[in-house]
């Protein structure tokens, strides 16, 4: 994977995904190693995303790398009208790898074609956020022992959530049975459902969260945003139907783990946090190990 950019989850093969997850496991055991001491990592956040940026910066810093960059485009030359191409060409003189977040879809792919150094996509508009997908895969594999033959429920906004779309597509490589729970207005798009059908994988669709809880190994929760509804009344009707409360977990399998890409608003009540099934904060920690694995393997300091 040396010098290879990571723009879309499909850029890496299944074998490369597994390799990254194994490497991430090694960094979980030894998160502080000065293997990137001679390297400069640039984090270019053309739109703010504090959580993702801190995770990358923590990963880089714990490996001894220097981090440069900007946290949103208002403080950079971008506001003076500089093109993305010029920014990337300039910054690639100063660093060994670029991590970028940008509001436009396709921006990271374009940057990787312009840059002299590899690029990691930390989110390009509604398109891709592959390091989120990899940390989700890592969390599932770690808690279930394997990625194969699992029952995974996706709950909430399945229409607009790019996190859900990428993870569904990635899990199609692992004989997953999908349980799709959402209001009718926010069903999984047919283009994503096509990936499930193409692999002849089983899936169910429901509007009721209680239908699936006892059947699944992973419960992937997402937030339903009011802005997604053209009629505010439709939102009012469904807003409380997709909230997970601790009392709902009584019949769950003991190996069930609850994931959420964070930030959470109210879709998981805080009484779930103390349940051993709650995994979302550890999931965020796993992101650091996955990003360490990516930085180290793309920079070529580990095989």
């Amino acid at each position: 994977m040396k010098n290879k950019s990571l723009i879309s989850i499909n850029d890496f093969t299944r074998e490369e995904h597994i390799r990254i997850l194994e490497l991430a496991g090694a960094f979980e055991k030894r998160p502080r190693q000065h293997i990137l001491a001679d390297y400069v990592v640039a984090t270019l956040f053309f739109e703010p995303s504090t959580r993702t940026r801190l995770s990358f910066e923590s990963a880089a810093t714990r490996l001894g790398a220097k981090v440069i960059g900007f946290t949103d485009s208002s403080s950079s030359s971008v506001t003076k009208g500089e093109s993305l191409r010029d920014t990337i060409l300039t910054v690639s003189n100063y660093c060994d790898i670029i991590v970028m977040r940008h509001p436009r879809e396709g921006s990271a792919r374009f940057a990787s074609e312009v840059a002299k150094v590899p690029v990691i996509n930390a989110g390009d508009g509604a398109n891709q956020h592959p390091t989120q997908t990899l940390l989700d895969l890592y969390s599932i594999r770690k808690t279930q022992g394997s990625l194969d033959n699992l029952n995974v429920a996706f709950v909430g906004d399945l229409k607009y959530g790019r996190t859900v779309h990428s993870l569904v597509q990635a899990l199609c490589n692992y004989k997953t049975t999908f349980h799709l729970v959402s209001p009718l207005e926010l069903k999984l798009p047919s283009s994503i459902k096509m990936s499930i059908k193409e692999r002849n994988l089983e899936y169910s669709q429901s509007t009721d969260l209680l239908d699936v809880i006892s059947k699944v190994d992973i419960l992937y929760m997402t937030r339903i945003q009011k802005e997604r509804f053209s009629d505010p009344l439709d939102y009012e009707k469904v807003k409380n139907a997709y909230i997970l409360r601790n009392s709902m977990l009584a019949d769950a399998r003991s190996n069930l783990r609850i994931l959420h890409p964070l930030p959470r608003v109210n879709e998981i009540t805080t009484d779930v946090d103390d349940n051993p099934m709650a995994y979302y904060f550890t999931q965020a920690l796993n992101g650091v190990f996955v990003r360490q694995a990516l930085l180290a393997s793309i920079l070529g300091v580990v095989e």
Partner: peptide, 11 residues
């Protein structure tokens, strides 16, 4: 897609 980079930069 109006939000595609090709509709917003010289690409």
């Amino acid at each position: 897609n109006p939000n595609c980079i090709t509709n917003n930069e010289d690409v």
